[in-house]
Write a protein that binds this DNA or RNA. Structure first.
Length: 367
DNA sequence: AACTCGGGGGT
DNA sequence: ACCCCAGAGTT
């Protein structure tokens, strides 16, 4: 089986010069006024890049300012309680990012005197700094001539140069990073890198690209070939996993009963409602509440139940269907359960200071 | 290289 | 409903 042919893009000097000057001029006038573009604080820029990993600008804006208000410096983040860091992240998802962020802050305090090092190799050694984030912080926060490739940049390159590369493989990675380095504008790497991403985010969009607004449309090979709709090649689809769970909002006057996720596995350290997995919708399992933990049995102790219509929640390739109900807990039972290490009884007004997953917060808010 | 991440907003 | 996002870490 022949491999799909790859067209190595020819980069003649005139083309490179046009792409650079046209895109930079466009970016100077078209850049969105994003809050992290108003600061030169490396920590604030770093925080934005971590929050933006696999997460859209629209979802990040509110979180970024709130996080900085609470933990404005690397020292403050390093010294903060992990629960506070995770609580500030609640709803953003991919909570490993928050743990890596704090671990990196602690290492920056220990190794670099609390200041982010202006050195790509040193940055890349920090938790949460992969190739993209290293290039982004180096170029945007420190003005270093380092390239970056994200989903936007790869899409722009695929269209500019009519690249037919299987996404995320070795050839895809080498081609995109090679192009990013070759095109980089060394004396303004931050502006160039952000201009590439901005074009991908606002003009060269995955569907319905606005080629009429593109400053370099006349140099776009996919445009010339009428192939903007079919490039870049789509990623292979992952099979969707259906998950059915039953969750319990057990509440007494003293608060809501929560369980803390154990270390390892999904959402370690986050609080969630007592939950058990169902073999099929409406088919109760044999397990106790909360099914995952093998801890005290709740079922005999609640007074009345309110059913809620099933919650549906999608995360990556999981489709989660949650049958939730609210039950009243007798105060004595609540006290006994809260005294066991398996449960925490949390007053509603304290919930916002705890690390809750988005799904957990959604269910609690619905009752 | 493939898989996970128990999010979420735009279209 | 589907797409895919300013990806990184693990296996």
């Amino acid at each position: 089986m022949a491999r799909p042919e790859v067209h190595p893009p020819k980069l003649d000097d005139a083309l490179v010069a046009r792409l650079r000057s046209e895109l930079l001029a466009w970016y100077a006038g078209a850049a969105r006024d994003l809050p992290w573009r108003r600061t030169r604080d490396p920590f604030a820029i770093w925080l934005s890049e971590v929050m933006l990993q696999q997460t859209r600008v629209e979802a990040v804006v509110g979180y970024w300012q709130r996080f900085l208000d609470a933990l404005p410096t690397i020292e403050a983040l390093a010294a903060a309680d992990e629960d506070q860091v995770l609580a500030l992240w609640s709803g953003l998802g991919y909570y490993r990012r928050a743990r890596a962020l704090q671990a990196a802050a602690q290492r920056v305090v220990a190794l670099h005197g609390g200041r982010l090092p202006a050195d790509p190799a040193a940055l890349a050694d920090l938790p949460g700094f992969g190739p993209y984030t290293t290039g982004a912080v180096a170029s945007i926060a420190f003005g270093l001539a380092e390239p970056l490739v994200d989903g936007n940049v790869a899409r722009v390159f695929a269209r500019w140069f009519e690249l037919e590369l299987e996404p995320h493989g070795g050839p895809w990675r080498r081609t995109n990073w090679g192009l990013a380095r070759a095109l980089l504008v060394a004396d303004q790497p931050g502006a160039w890198n952000q201009a590439l991403m901005e074009l991908g985010a606002t003009v060269c969009t995955p569907r319905s690209p606005r080629c009429g607004a593109c400053p370099v449309a006349s140099d776009c090979r996919a445009r010339a070939a009428g192939r903007t709709a079919e490039l870049p090649l789509p990623p292979k689809k992952r099979a969707v996993v259906e998950v059915h769970v039953e969750a319990l909002l057990a509440e007494s006057p003293a608060g809501v009963l929560l369980v803390r996720r154990p270390p390892g596995g999904r959402n370690p350290g986050l609080f969630e409602l007592p939950t058990r997995e169902l073999a099929a919708p409406g088919r109760p399992p044999a397990g106790l509440w909360p099914g995952d933990f093998g801890t005290p049995k709740l079922e005999p102790h609640w007074e009345a139940a309110d059913e809620a219509s099933p919650f549906r929640h999608a995360i990556t390739h999981h489709r989660i269907r949650v049958e939730a109900r609210r039950v009243g807990l007798k105060p004595a039972v609540a006290r006994r359960l809260a005294a066991s290490s398996a449960y925490d009884l949390v007053p509603r007004e304290r919930l916002e200071s705890l690390p809750l997953s988005g799904l957990t917060a959604k269910i609690i808010a619905a009752f």
